[in-house]
Design a protein around this nucleic acid. Sequence first.
DNA 1: CACTTAACGCGAACATCTTCGCGTCAACGG
DNA 2: CCGTTGACGCGAAGATGTTCGCGTTAAGTG
Lengths: 187, 187
Amino acid sequence: MSDQRQSRPGGRTARVRADVLRAVDDLTTEQPLAQLTLAQVAERSGVHLGTLYRRWGSLDGLLLDAVAERLTVRSPVRDTGNLHADLEDYAHHVAEDLSGPDGKLLLRTLVAVRLGTQAQLPPALTRRYDEMQALLDRARARGENPPTLQQIVDVVVAPLYTALLFGTTPTNPATLVDRLLKLHPDQ
Amino acid sequence: MSDQRQSRPGGRTARVRADVLRAVDDLTTEQPLAQLTLAQVAERSGVHLGTLYRRWGSLDGLLLDAVAERLTVRSPVRDTGNLHADLEDYAHHVAEDLSGPDGKLLLRTLVAVRLGTQAQLPPALTRRYDEMQALLDRARARGENPPTLQQIVDVVVAPLYTALLFGTTPTNPATLVDRLLKLHPDQ
DNA sequence: CACTTAACGCGAACATCTTCGCGTCAACGG
DNA sequence: CCGTTGACGCGAAGATGTTCGCGTTAAGTG
């Protein structure tokens, strides 16, 4: 008794999704995120409003898909063998992602998930942390003594998020990485 | 031509506000914050729905008032003259506030403000930072060399917020303060 | 103690959001 | 190439959310 249902992700379905996500991208750059509605997305994309509810359930659900799609396309974590350089590269990317329109989009969807409006985070959004963990594992395999993932999140990532949350100027990513290495000398 | 309008904050108006805020407190402890509605607040408090819209404009507006009221009542920043102890005390309070139901409430309202749904943050919510700044100023006046407010936010406060945002276990407040002092030796 | 009018209760009207059933089209498998 | 049926378009119905005008109450003032 296999309860596997058939699905048809190709052809028209894929085209509809692409149209919708493009419409979300356009609309979020044209106006404040707060006044975006599903009706707008329907009109702009040419996809029927009922379809949006059927596939994504809610505006937050759609935005979650959209932001996951965007961040997946972005640059993955690099591993040059130089931990300091890789961390700076990573911090720089996070700061960049959070500063643009994607920052508020990510903030909104993260809160929606935490508040229970939306289901679990899609794997695409936690992939960066997996990659970072792999980076640390490889450094350890080389005989280095890297910081833990939580230390990186605390010292480097967290200040970038709170700057976004409070609307203040974020501390320079390079400064944040320096702090981490000062707290955790890798010798 | 004075455009000062008369207002009547006393008596019935104050009683209505108290009833409404109490209803919000009750409801937020009984159910997920995501499914709270103004209609529920109206029914529970006995205040007419139209009045809620008139006074607070939206659910987020009401929640902003509620959370500001709550955090104002809470313990202010202490100044015992021992910077390390005062910082730990402060970090402990922040961690406590964020861990309870108030945490999600604060998160939601902060994001609402940042996304433009709500107006500026009420002074009550930024008061702690003013008090902390005053604490640092006094320490400096005593001849000490305290960290800056931004350093405190980055190293101590930010990790507590991201733990809430990501749903992870927050780092011990004492550990966070130790990090700050390690980065910024006060001698 | 009067008088003015801000603030509220009330309910209907209005707007927006969400769901649903049905017919059609085309993706996928054989 | 044919058959099955998942996904979509469509529009109406239903549910929620928001505003408005009017009458009533009581806070603040002289």
